[in-house]
Design a protein around this nucleic acid. Sequence first.
DNA 1: ATCGTGTTTCGATATGTGTCAACATAGACT
DNA 2: AGTCTATGTTGACACATATCGAAACACGAT
Lengths: 109, 109
Amino acid sequence: MTAEEAETAARMFKALGDPVRLRLFSSVASHEGGEACVCDISDVGVSQPTVSHHLKKLREAGLLTSERRGTWVYYRVQPSVLAAMGRLLAPAFAPAPSQDQSPAPTPAT
Amino acid sequence: MTAEEAETAARMFKALGDPVRLRLFSSVASHEGGEACVCDISDVGVSQPTVSHHLKKLREAGLLTSERRGTWVYYRVQPSVLAAMGRLLAPAFAPAPSQDQSPAPTPAT
DNA sequence: ATCGTGTTTCGATATGTGTCAACATAGACT
DNA sequence: AGTCTATGTTGACACATATCGAAACACGAT
């Protein structure tokens, strides 16, 4: 893993590395229709401006997208994120650079 | 996702939310034999004490375990982490999208 | 005792987190 | 139109936490 890849990946992990943000992200991702209004996910124990700040961070990290429709603002998960996460985690957990045949280093503890 | 689950999961994401730590974790995870000596992974652009700091954080987050064998200290990935990550990401990324679409977000009255 | 490998302590600097107040936007209402 | 209300965002600030390296320490091997 190069320094550049690490930067990109770490930015995503970092965005999810806060309980409030993780819950917000999870709420959006698991919401019916794939999108959620801010008013539907604002019950995470912090003030509404704080929610907005966190949503901004998730947006800036490329994890969420926002769209205003009328009065409400809807957030949805950036589709590419799913694949990106998978690609990032897979090599870390099952690198198999060239000669490794074991798919996952799960040593019998 | 409850607040408690978010706390636990966020701690893991947070630990990986730093480029240096992510590279260290990746190095350990992808190292042959499933473990790596500190001396093998210390080339990440920061001083050796800093590497030790980050490795400690990864340990405290439950992502890595360390073991001293003679002169060197070996790190390996906590096996349960792989499954835990999978469980965490799966529901967020594959929320079994329902066909129901309710545009009205039921604002708090 | 001396060297090599990691860890810890300590301090300086940087970044993150949360709230209040103010602002922007969209709909409703007279 | 103008005004009011509701929904989110942004700015400013206090407070907490993270990051990093120099120096000192702990541990094992020679």
